[in-house]
Amino acid sequence: MTALAPEGVAATARITAVPDGLGGTRLPVLESDGPLALRRTRGAGAYARVTVVGAMSAPLGGDRLAIEAGVRDGAALTVDSAAATVALPGRGGRPARYDVRLTAGAGACLRWLPEALISARGSDLRMTTRVELAARARLVLREEQILGRYGEETGTLTTRLTVHRAGRPLLDQELAYGPGAPGGWDGAAVLGGNRAVGQLLVVRPEFERSPPEAALLGDNAVLTPLAGPAVLVTAVAADALRLRRVLDRALRTFG
């Protein structure tokens, strides 16, 4: 439930997806909370679809937001969002937290495709995304970070994406940008002056037998097979549009 924390909102939205027994998926848990409003929208095939609406102006500094989505054995769920999430500065300059916790069971399919996260000037957001996959689960996950709105300096943004499969680490990545990040984040090793960075992770059990080959997707993006049965597209771009173009192309191939 929403709680009014002394210096911000604490809210946790929850989704649970289970097979409906008819080849589709139903959502016995669909709990909106505070700024995180969830709507069931029209899915495709076996997939149920949930769209996060109303997160546009959150998180503000001091907020603690979380989304938990569980896809049980054999269920299929797509989660997307109606608009980009903009991290804004809040009261007292405190950082905001946004924690995403995802689980997918045996034979479950999860497509986590939110719109971009935009770090506005003066904001400070710490985001974590933690994914626990069963060995036979399938995942498509997209993350996009845009550093500053149009023509604006970026805020401080740190993200950590941790994915475990069958209890073992599959991918663990932290990114830190902006005035509160350690030095060099804008330089030749990290972003090279780019303002949009994104990733598309695709986990499929069948990659264990036949992993896709690494491939360059232009000068600033690459598709790489991980040590486990997954591929990761890593891309940097000058802006959100160019970033999405690269990730969409990969999504069409692997989505």
Binding site: P211, A227, G228
Partner: peptide, 8 residues
Amino acid sequence: MHLDHSHD
């Protein structure tokens, strides 16, 4: 599960 290394 690790696809990179062999043990030979």
